[in-house]
C-alpha cells in the first residue's frame, strides 16, 4: 500500500491505457510537455512520445472534432477540456456528433472518445473556472457521464472509460485532485452504472456524487455524533448510467433521502435523482425527498464561493427538515409568504 492522490491515480490510468493499447491518443491544450495545468498528464509525452500525447491548437471544438475524425480511423482519443467552462466551445461537437454518431449510423460507427474535464469549484478559482456542467451532458443521450470521488475510482473508472466503445464525459472534481488514499494500483472497482454505499446508516440516505461525496460523509459523521441520526451515504460514481437499484434500495431501507449536488439546483441532476427516488420509493418515504445544491446563480467569485457551495451545515440543516417529529416542513411556505 502507498499513498496515492486522485491526480496520481488519473495519471497512472492514462499511462496504463497508453501502454496497453497503441490506439489510445491523449491530446488537448498544454497536456504535452507541461503535463496539463493540473499535471494530470505529467510525463506522458516524455514516456510515450509526442506521437501519443500531444498539444493541439487552442480550439475546443477543433479538439473534439479532430477526435471524431481520429475515432473514425480506429483511434481512441482521450481529450482534455482545460476547465469545465472552456468545454462549451466544443458543445456542438459533443452533443451533435460524439453523442449521436453510433445512433445516427445504426451502430456502425461508435465514438470511443473520452472527454476529460476538471469540474466544479471549491478551489478559489475565478469566474469560468468552477462550473458544474454535468447536467448538460447527462441530459444528452449517447454520453456516459462519470464523476469519480475517490482515487481508486479515479483510476478504475478512467480505465473503463478509455476501454469503453462509447463516449464518456469524465468529470474530475478539481477540489479532490489532491485528496489521498492508501492504495495499490492498478485497482479495479465496481463498473459503470453501480453506485457505492460509502457509509451505512439506517435513518436517512444522502445521495451525492463527485465533489460532494466527502462533504456528505463529513455531514454524516457530524449528524451521528451531534444528533444521533444514522446516515447512509451513496456515491453515484456514474451519473449515466444511473444506478436506480442501489439508490432506491438504500432509500427504502432508511425512509428518508437528501440529494447533494454542487451544481445549481434548477433543472439539474439533483432534481432528476430526487424525482427518480420519489417515483420508486414513495411508500417507503417518511418525508419528501430534499435537495441540497448550489444556489441558482452564476458561480460566485472566490471570496463568496463558500456561500454557494453546499457545505456540511447546509446538509445538516436539510436533514433536520425531514419531518422527524411528523410535522410538515413549512420552509417553502415561509419563503413565499
Amino acid at each position: 500500500m502507498s499513498t496515492t492522490t486522485f491526480a496520481q491515480a488519473l495519471n497512472r490510468a492514462l499511462r496504463d491505457s497508453l501502454a496497453e493499447d497503441d490506439n489510445v491518443l491523449v491530446f488537448g491544450e498544454d497536456v504535452g510537455q507541461l503535463g496539463g495545468v493540473f499535471r494530470i498528464t505529467d510525463g506522458l509525452t516524455a514516456d510515450f512520445g509526442e506521437e501519443r500525447c500531444f498539444d493541439t491548437p487552442l480550439a475546443e471544438a477543433g479538439i473534439a472534432g479532430f477526435a471524431v475524425g481520429l475515432a473514425m480511423q480506429g483511434f481512441r482519443p482521450v481529450i482534455e477540456m482545460q476547465f469545465d467552462a472552456f468545454g462549451y466551445p466544443a458543445f456542438e461537437q459533443v452533443v451533435s456528433h460524439i453523442a449521436k454518431m453510433r445512433n445516427r449510423t445504426q451502430g456502425r460507427l461508435g465514438m470511443p472518445i473520452v472527454i476529460r474535464m476538471p469540474f466544479a469549484g471549491g478551489i478559489g478559482g475565478v469566474e469560468h473556472h468552477c462550473d458544474s456542467s454535468e447536467g448538460y451532458y447527462a441530459h444528452t443521450p449517447g454520453l456516459h457521464v462519470v464523476t469519480p470521488a475517490t482515487p481508486a475510482d479515479a483510476y478504475s473508472l478512467l480505465r473503463e472509460a478509455i476501454a469503453s466503445d462509447d463516449p464518456v464525459v469524465f468529470m474530475e472534481p478539481k477540489a479532490l485532485y489532491w485528496s489521498k488514499a492508501e492504495l495499490e494500483l492498478p485497482v479495479t472497482t465496481e463498473p459503470f452504472g453501480r453506485a457505492a454505499v460509502r457509509r451505512e446508516g439506517t435513518d436517512v440516505t444522502l445521495v451525492a456524487y463527485g465533489p460532494q461525496v466527502p462533504n456528505a460523509l463529513r455531514a454524516a459523521e457530524v449528524a451521528e455524533q451531534e444528533e444521533g441520526w444514522s446516515v447512509e451515504v451513496v456515491d453515484l460514481r456514474t451519473i449515466v448510467p444511473f444506478d436506480d437499484e442501489t439508490v432506491a434500495a438504500s432509500v427504502r431501507r432508511t425512509g428518508r433521502c437528501v440529494v447533494v449536488s454542487e451544481a445549481q439546483g434548477f433543472g439539474g441532476v439533483g432534481g432528476e435523482v430526487a424525482a427518480r427516488v420519489a417515483e420508486r420509493c414513495f411508500h417507503s418515504l417518511a418525508a419528501p425527498v430534499l435537495r441540497v445544491t448550489g444556489l441558482d446563480i452564476p458561480y460566485p467569485p472566490p471570496k463568496l464561493e463558500h456561500t454557494h457551495l453546499p457545505g456540511v451545515d447546509r446538509i445538516l440543516d436539510t436533514i433536520a427538515r425531514l419531518q422527524w417529529d411528523d410535522q410538515p416542513d413549512t420552509t417553502h411556505l415561509a419563503a413565499t409568504r
Binding site: G65, F66, V68, L70, M72, Q73, H97
Partner: peptide
Amino acid sequence: APHAAGAGHG
C-alpha cells in the same frame, strides 16, 4: 471540417 482534419491525420 475538424472531422476531416482528424480523419486525414489518422
